[in-house]
């Protein structure tokens, strides 16, 4: 039986980035969510909303995009579910905070 040639080494990545270039608008909300979680620790959506001071729909969009990128997750062992950074999310948030502090 003939093996199909490997058709995709990085095509999925390129397509995905280029697709989003056409439809997404610049937004700093996901990064604000990440730095807030890094500074204040895990919290539920309501508390996060109060901390970052972002309208609910935009906060939810930001959270969903962070979750899809594997940078935050919901700990569902808690009743209302708290949002926490993943290991990679922690690394990224710390890089942002450290770099901003250095630049200030």
């Amino acid at each position: 039986m003939e093996n199909k040639p490997k058709s995709d080494d990085f095509g999925t990545f390129l397509e995905s980035v280029q697709r989003s270039e056409k439809r997404e608008t610049p937004s700093n909300i996901p990064m604000r969510i990440m730095t807030a979680l890094s500074r204040f620790g895990t919290m539920d959506l309501l508390k996060l909303m109060a901390v970052v001071d972002i309208p609910p729909t935009e906060l939810l969009e930001g959270f969903i995009s962070l979750q899809a990128a594997g940078l935050v997750r919901i700990d569902e062992s808690v009743k209302r579910g708290v949002i926490e950074l993943t290991v990679e999310g922690v690394q990224m948030a710390q890089t942002i905070i450290t770099s901003e502090e250095e630049q200030a």
């Binding site: 999925t12 990545f13 989003s20 997404e24």
Partner: peptide, 9 residues
Amino acid sequence: EQFARKINL
């Protein structure tokens, strides 16, 4: 896909 989302963010 997940990596692309990170880059987009």
